[in-house]
Design a protein around this nucleic acid. Sequence first.
DNA 1: CTAAAAACCTATTAATATAGTATGTTAGTT
DNA 2: AACTAACATACTATATTAATAGGTTTTTAG
Lengths: 143, 143
Amino acid sequence: MLISTRGRYALRLLIDMAEHSGKDYIKLKDVAERQDISEKYLESIVKQLVTGHIIVGLRGKGGGYRLSKAPDEIVVGDIMRLMEGGLAPVACLENESFNCPRMGMCRTLNFWRGLDDVIHKYIDSYTIADFMRTDESGNDYVI
Amino acid sequence: MLISTRGRYALRLLIDMAEHSGKDYIKLKDVAERQDISEKYLESIVKQLVTGHIIVGLRGKGGGYRLSKAPDEIVVGDIMRLMEGGLAPVACLENESFNCPRMGMCRTLNFWRGLDDVIHKYIDSYTIADFMRTDESGNDYVI
DNA sequence: CTAAAAACCTATTAATATAGTATGTTAGTT
DNA sequence: AACTAACATACTATATTAATAGGTTTTTAG
């Protein structure tokens, strides 16, 4: 599994926030309810997004979260890399610490790099805006 | 991690077998040594490849394994799907049993399907022959 | 000024997958 | 008959995932 619940939930959360953004801050409780995701689990996801400067939190009564930039500036690839801590399809590409001794002579390394490329290219071609409802018909489907 | 050691090792094993194939059957012990992979662990991988009709085993002295078809007929995508048991990048696409209740209204499903597509398209564009050494210079690199 | 609300923080846990290891048994060759 | 190599089954340590639990801090509203 390349993408875990953290990445998927983060995406749904951000789309939800983008669609419900107005003057007020958005409460996690509301998102959790609408998206049917455990509020407590969402908290840990949201924390990461705050650290990554994707969203901003405001404490206290009347507080909540808001996006730190426009939906069309939030690249899905950035969210996934943030939430999953990298997105390497194979261990060889994950980090420096792996440091495979076969690196220099490996026949398959470039193949994996190519796979890594197509994945990042794809997810970097989408922003949160691409997932938002474009009309007011109440149509929840993206065709 | 989309691809585990099983998928990676299977690929290296098949490339190794393709390059060392002659009239004799290839012994697992030799592949394990050349590739520096535990022979016992390779056994479990090889078992899956036999079941999947990618390679054929011959018991007894002088036995071993051989490819069941030409290297350029062995598609890497088929190997990965066999070894990893599917290759879904997200749980939603994995199997019928997951059966997400949001399937019908999910805003992100098509995005994940697209990701799934680019992954399969990429790995299906390679065969074992693409990894084999083309000259006799002893050059182990694929540029 | 106090109570409520909401973000923020830290620790724990059940379940599952991964990457092997260990110990055999069966079949076929020399 | 001895040897070899595939084939088979069971076990294990470690890590990750997907949460849950229970609390603390900050801020606004009444």
